[in-house]
Write a protein that binds this DNA or RNA. Structure first.
Lengths: 193, 193
DNA sequence: TGAAAAGGTTGAACAAGTTCAATAAATGAA
DNA sequence: TTCATTTATTGAACTTGTTCAACCTTTTCA
């Protein structure tokens, strides 16, 4: 049961059958249709989710109503507002399905139960947070030093499976540029080759 | 001994006297003078460091020889290239003292010893990585959606203790702008008030 | 099927940020 | 103290990216 989740865990830590089923039963499956919102800014994020189907975007909306996308999550990725979830603070973020999706949700209570009773789970999440952090550090450096053209080219190269499934509006919000300018970058690339 | 480090740990997890001294003896104190480099890109990062005096910058140098600063660390902050340290891969980063400094270093072997023998330490580092990650997420969103003026104003407000000790060159490399443009922003602010 | 909504492109005017060069001010080391 | 180095400022020309408006194409869904 929950095959994708089990495989994912197995890649990071080795659990016995009992530990694995003890942990996975702490999740509940939720179907989320396209455009449905799982978390709104202002609410406390009550879940951490493992995506088993579809795609989500985690994003911020500023005072000018512009959207900044923090990350996308497809199959085998996790979604949450880690700050809101762990500190039970109102979130600054939105989480929305951009395809018809399925996600396995775990509550804070159940996650704490896992930390208390399954020490290897603490390691799992430490390692995962670390990996996510490394990826964000690299993205930060790219954003500080590279032009939009370069960031777009690298996005396509690094995440071809996201690129194929995303609209240019979403990609522009991830790169931090207007969608019109992204369109001009694409035009330039198309005519250069 | 190592009072700053003990206080810092105590803020995150509660250790017995024995655990605390068992952990802190895994560190060694190093004096680092201004402009001395602790880690060069290309090397494997062999340490994780807790700053007890002075200040460091962790940065990247791109092909055009421009520097992007990932973060600064003063007293009570940690420094490492987490990717290079945990995966024993060549680093992409430099770590340099920008004041005469003191840092407590722990090796990978000793950190793994701590993880294996002091389960609370696993929690300490999970929580710390999580906090650092939340801060970087906020910075990422700011970088995607805000102008340099706004980012500068927020940097001063959020980190006044860093601001006072840093040159404008360092701040510009952190904000991702040229130091000339930062100078113009400062001029504009000065004349507006 | 057809109308509405969403996504994509283009151009023109503008704003934000860079580059280069010249100069001044502050700091540091002998 | 002094000379060299580093840091900060300013202006002019340039590049990168935004905004707004118009228009076209594709998708959605009743």
């Amino acid at each position: 049961m929950y095959q994708l989740l089990c495989d994912h865990i197995e890649q990071h830590v080795h659990l016995t059958e009992a530990e694995l089923s003890g942990f996975t039963t702490l999740f509940e499956l939720k179907n989320v249709s396209k455009k449905q919102i799982l978390l709104k800014a202002g609410e406390v994020c009550r879940f951490e989710g493992f995506v088993t189907k579809g795609m989500f975007r985690v994003y911020h909306i500023d005072k000018n109503a512009a959207e900044q996308i923090l990350y996308f999550a497809i199959e085998n990725w996790w979604i949450t507002d880690i700050d809101s979830f762990t500190n039970e603070r109102p979130s600054q973020l939105f989480i929305e399905a951009i395809e018809d999706s399925e996600v396995l949700l775990i509550s804070k209570k159940n996650k704490e139960f896992a930390y208390a009773n399954l020490p290897k789970i603490e390691k799992l999440f430490r390692v995962m947070t670390q990996k996510t952090h490394v990826a964000l550090q690299r993205r930060m450096i790219d954003n500080l030093g590279k032009t939009a053209d370069q960031r777009y080219a690298e996005f396509i190269e690094r995440y071809p499976q996201l690129f194929r499934r995303l609209s240019n509006l979403q990609i522009a919000a991830y790169l931090g540029i207007s969608h019109e300018f992204l369109s001009k970058i694409r035009n330039k690339i198309a005519h250069k080759k």
